[in-house]
Design a protein around this nucleic acid. Structure first.
Lengths: 339, 339
DNA sequence: TTGTAGGCGTTATCAT
DNA sequence: ATGATAACGCCTACAA
């Protein structure tokens, strides 16, 4: 590979001048600049990051540590958001998966230190409480899609499950639904609590009582090996004498099962029963017919803005608030009809 | 960060001796070794990769360049496989997404060169023909889940769609099915052709004729904005007087739509009609009730073994064959019953 | 078995 | 406006 010295030799200048050109520093005559640029183009010179890192003792690198993220398809967009931010800002990103193993997590931190990363993004697949296990390493960091078990400590960026669920519920109510079946997410997930609370608060606000809603537990047990009651509970809700006119589901995959249950009973969607999901997991929400009305998790933005926030922290700027929440916008499709 | 010199000072040896300990080189007395190890542990010293890279002029890094991979959930497991191999072998991995844009692809190659990667993995979301656009860069590389447009050139590792489809078809035939509806993938995808060809060859082998099978096009048009006929074609197949006893679908999401069509017509799965998919895309294949019988794309292994193969190439070992194909194992669940 | 000298490609500093 | 020199942390080559 051609080095800065080689470029300097060919351009008939010193290596420092080439450095100035490459880094757009001032005090270079226009014609010198042009000449150096031409040699750079001709030789295909690209600065060596490792050398730059060594000299400046800044790696310009951040590490992403994920739990099951690559095992499961859901939140790959978080990583994409981070990478897009990094590419747009000349930063390098290092990715490590723990697959949920603590020893791999420690190993990953070691790898990160070897690369002298300047900050870390801790990304979880589900919106949940997390306890990053970084050994003795202390580094600027940002939790994405999770929050710390220890109240005081870490900065985070999270989806606003509450707002998403509230808006979805308001939408359902605005369509005239007054008998609502609700299938809860696994209570282990943060979203479960927030979505459910928002749902209850919103229907109460609208004047509905306990008898108007019927809340069932869709899933429970440890993540990854949960027991799934969705299909059965959906059927049970729909078999009631006074069956709900709409089923609100903890997420889109639960909505899928609600579809199967409803269709299996000969009900048409949305004529006989409306269904809404949550997440906007498109391989499901768009494959369903009719397409699913849902609330979208802002995965890409969580990543993009999380990286941005971490970078501010690295630069020493104080964060306006420890936790930032991003809206889950309503996505209206055709699975929820007026009563 | 503590450096090798600092460790050397604290241990009362030269930096070279520390280097020997760190790299497990011979010719270090046991007690020296122990003493140095203790200082390393106490100080938390971790070798600086950038410095190591500079000195040895080996970056130990490979780059992954993906098309839409992070945009879509399908093949994240390829990346996980690569990373696991890299972690197990002390290699660093750099990830870049093009999102299908050529300019981002060139930009990514530039970033890779800046990090002096030793080889590149070109990963596509769909099994397809690809033309990596690496500008003037020439580097050991491996195509994963795709093959080169130019026959001669590049090494690749791909799923064996033919074998997967053949085994799936044999399984269906073994269950006694003799009237088969087949919903084709978008012909733009490599898998579409191979799966379809294997299907036809296998039913012919079993003595079935053209009148026993009914092949419909499920999707067509440019990837990402295709026209989707699956639901309609599935209904059409099931409305035939002499309807197929099984629907074989190009992939699992098409199978999902076949489920919706069948259930919507009051048919039970698998009692009235069997359905099989392809891919084993678990958020769908496991969410469907009954769970879906399908063939699994070996994404993780594609990544793991692809990285391994690239590493051999970097080390200068010749590949046994330019293209390696990996089996798509049959996954039997309960959506396909005996006739 | 251990240590010394030197240089990888850059950029900071200071000189010109 | 440009250049000379040193230094970042590590490892190769060689010396002791």
């Amino acid at each position: 590979m051609v080095s800065i010295k080689e470029v300097a030799r060919l351009a008939g200048v010193s290596d420092k001048t080439v450095s100035r050109v490459v880094n757009r520093e001032p005090n270079v005559r226009a014609d010198t600049f042009t000449r150096v640029q031409r040699v750079i183009a001709e030789t295909g010179y690209v600065p060596n990051m490792a050398a730059r890192h060594m000299r400046s003792s800044r790696s310009n690198t951040m590490g992403i540590i994920t739990d099951y993220i690559s095992t499961t398809p859901y939140s790959g967009n978080i990583v994409r958001g981070i990478q897009d931010w990094a590419a747009a800002n000349g930063r390098t990103v290092l990715l490590a998966n723990t697959n949920g193993h603590l020893d791999k997590e420690l190993e990953s931190w070691k790898m990160f230190m070897a690369h002298r990363i300047e900050g870390a993004l801790y990304v979880t697949m589900y919106h949940r409480i997390a306890s990053p296990e970084r050994g003795s390493v202390t580094l600027p960091s940002m939790l994405i899609n999770c929050r710390s078990a220890k109240e005081e400590s870490e900065a985070s960026i999270e989806p606003d499950d509450f707002q998403g669920s509230r808006d979805l519920t308001r939408f359902v109510l605005a369509r005239g639904h007054r008998r609502i079946g609700y299938l809860r997410l696994n209570p282990k997930l943060l979203g479960a609590e927030e979505r459910h609370t928002a749902f209850r608060a919103t229907v109460r606000e609208a004047g509905l009582g306990e008898s108007d809603i019927d809340v069932r537990l869709g899933m429970e047990g440890p993540i990854g090996s949960e027991r799934n009651h969705v299909y059965r509970e959906a059927r049970s809700l729909l078999e009631k004498a006074n069956r709900p006119s709409v089923l609100m589901c903890g997420n889109d995959e639960m909505a899928l099962q609600a579809y199967l249950a409803a269709l299996g009973m000969g009900l048409q969607i949305p004529q006989d029963v409306s269904i809404v999901g949550f997440d906007d997991f498109q391989p499901v929400s768009l494959a369903l017919k009719p397409e699913l009305t849902t609330a979208a998790l802002p995965y890409y933005d969580l990543g993009y803005r999380g990286a941005e926030r971490l970078d501010s922290t690295i630069a020493g700027k104080p964060l306006a608030s420890r936790t930032l929440t991003l809206d889950c916008p309503l996505v209206v499709r055709s699975s929820c009809a007026p009563v």
